[in-house]
């Protein structure tokens, strides 16, 4: 099939970008979306043009490197997958496909479709851990955890840090990401000693990074490739407000 691509091209963070139209012909429906872009890039390279830059790595939906806002939706039109798992059979012959980078103040464009998502790392570094050193920990089975709790913590932990939640949110809010990270440890007994300190530190960093506020539209949940629930957001809100308004210790 043949497609018209409207791709955001931007040389670097300091220059203004614009849409450039490319023709992608003879696209196989078995290709992944990124493989389709690979083919376009091979052509561009051969013509002496700069290939389209985009982040990608594992190409199996787990590393969270790939992004792309495709026809108005992060990771494209299908739910529960990343762009690298999107196959061209999702599109129809002669479709026009608009490809944009994630747009957020906190995710500045590096080049073309690649953005800087280190804000997520900084939020994690602010408190997304249990303070245990290597060695000197109890036996793994010394801490029984009810299966439902372990499963729920796992559901939160499936976040791959791709940033689709921010990209989808009309406010560019990072609440789903942060709350998933906060929730995983807030649910588990291992996370309790630092539970309230953690949520305050991570929210403070989230605010400092310039993400927007949550208005509970649920777009993040709908677009999350790992289908993480906004229940996490409520849980984080509760913990944060408890920490700020009820807990006495300056934990």
């Amino acid at each position: 099939m043949n497609l018209t691509l409207k791709v955001w091209r931007q040389k670097n963070a300091d220059t203004k970008g614009k849409f450039v139209t490319y023709q992608a012909d003879h696209v196989s429906p078995d290709m992944s979306f990124l493989e389709m872009l690979d083919v376009v890039n091979e052509d561009l390279t051969k013509k002496g043009d700069d290939p389209i830059h985009f982040d990608h790595d594992c190409r199996e939906g787990i590393c969270g490197a790939c992004s792309l806002h495709i026809n108005g939706r992060p990771h494209g039109p299908k739910q529960g997958i990343t762009t690298c798992q999107l196959h061209m059979r999702t599109f129809k012959d002669n479709d026009t496909v608009v490809i944009e980078p994630w747009r957020a103040e906190a995710f500045p464009v590096i080049k073309d479709l690649a953005v800087d998502r280190r804000a997520f790392d900084r939020i994690q570094a602010a408190g997304g851990f249990v303070s245990v050193n290597t060695g000197g920990v109890p036996d793994a089975n010394a801490i029984p955890i009810p299966k439902v709790i372990a499963d729920e913590a796992f559901n939160s932990a499936t976040c791959i840090g791709c940033g689709a939640c921010v990209a989808a949110c009309k406010n560019a809010s990072a609440m789903l990401f942060v709350s998933a990270k906060v929730s995983q440890l807030a649910l588990l007994p291992q996370g309790q000693p630092e539970r309230y300190r953690r949520v305050q530190a991570m929210v403070a960093q989230m605010d400092a990074e310039g993400f927007g506020s949550c208005t509970n539209t649920g777009a993040c949940e709908a677009e999350c490739p790992k289908e993480i629930s906004i229940t996490n957001i409520a849980r984080m809100n509760r913990d944060y407000l408890t920490a700020k308004l009820i807990k006495q210790e300056e934990a």
Binding site: N71, G210, N216, A222
Partner: peptide, 25 residues
Amino acid sequence: IGNKKARPVAYSVQAGSQNSPWTSR
């Protein structure tokens, strides 16, 4: 205003209707 600042460059296409209810947006 804060939310507006959080996305200084708007998307040219944003299919909000496919991921969230109209009221919420």
